[in-house]
């Protein structure tokens, strides 16, 4: 589903190379995790895939079901089925959460040539999905993420994902700032969305999220590359021993 080949990215503003040839393929129905030390390029990868400004792709490709993503605007990528759950969800005072969600959903439907939903149809869908994430009517009415706790913000991200039903979901450190209960809620929300025609890329520092969202494949990223891939046990290895050993042996293999 998602195929990244030889992706090289640097910052636009300064001459700093962040991604140095990322190769990654996430087939439909699978959950892949990316782990790696700070500064290895994990978040950059998620931003580049979703189309944030400020990055320059100097080489490589990234396709979603064969369609090249990198030339598209963020909204076109979203309509194509890509979704990024933000590490730091943005607070937008003055824009109601429901207005935001409905505008987004209908914009995507329109872009795909589907009928837009009216207010009643939309509300019905949102209420059901919000309930599963323990998001009450009050939270839906408030401005987007304004005054939300860390856990509420992350649950709101998953709600957006559940409503927009993207095919390719990228979760950028969704576990950061979550307590155990919130992590369970969020994980259950993600797991409920797992399906044969949907794929996930879960970026995380810690193995504990992967206890709840069990990945098919774990990738280790370091210095702008995927240096090692393996099964779920790789996450456990990182948790117990840190990155040093893995990076060292990966370095030897690369050499």
């Amino acid at each position: 589903m998602l195929k990244i080949s030889n992706l090289h990215v640097q910052l636009e503003e300064e001459d700093k190379v962040i991604l140095k040839g990322v190769d990654l393929e996430v087939p439909a129905g699978e959950v892949h995790a990316i782990m790696g030390p700070n500064g290895s390029g994990k978040s950059t990868l998620s931003y580049v895939l979703s189309g944030r400004d400020g990055y320059e792709v100097t080489a490589g490709t990234a396709t979603l079901d064969g369609e090249e993503l990198l030339g598209l605007e963020p909204e076109e990528r979203a309509a194509a089925g890509l979704f990024l759950a933000f590490q730091y969800p943005v607070e937008i005072p003055g824009v109601g959460n429901l207005t935001f969600l409905r505008t987004a959903l209908n914009a995507q439907r329109k872009a795909r040539g589907e009928e837009e939903l009216n207010a009643a149809e939309f509300l019905k869908i949102v209420r059901a999905k919000a309930k599963a994430l323990d998001i009450d009517a009050e939270m839906l009415k408030r401005p987007v993420n304004v005054g939300f706790s860390g856990g509420e913000k992350k649950r709101n991200e998953i709600l957006q994902m559940a409503v927009l039903e993207p095919r390719m979901c990228i979760l950028d450190e969704t576990d950061s700032g979550l307590d155990v209960d919130a992590m369970k809620l969020v994980s259950a929300g993600v797991n409920a969305l797992r399906s044969p025609d949907r794929a996930f890329l879960v970026i995380t520092h810690y193995q504990r999220l992967l206890d709840h969202i069990v990945p098919d494949v774990v990738h280790i990223m370091a210095d702008g590359r995927i240096v090692h891939s393996g099964g779920p046990e790789l996450a456990l290895e990182v948790e117990n021993n840190g990155y040093a050993d893995i990076l060292k042996s990966a370095g030897e293999r690369v050499a």
Binding site: G51, E73, E75, V95, A111
Partner: peptide
């Protein structure tokens, strides 16, 4: 970016 990443033009 947040809004456009959700598909809003």
């Amino acid at each position: 970016f947040y809004l456009t990443s959700r598909g809003i033009p």
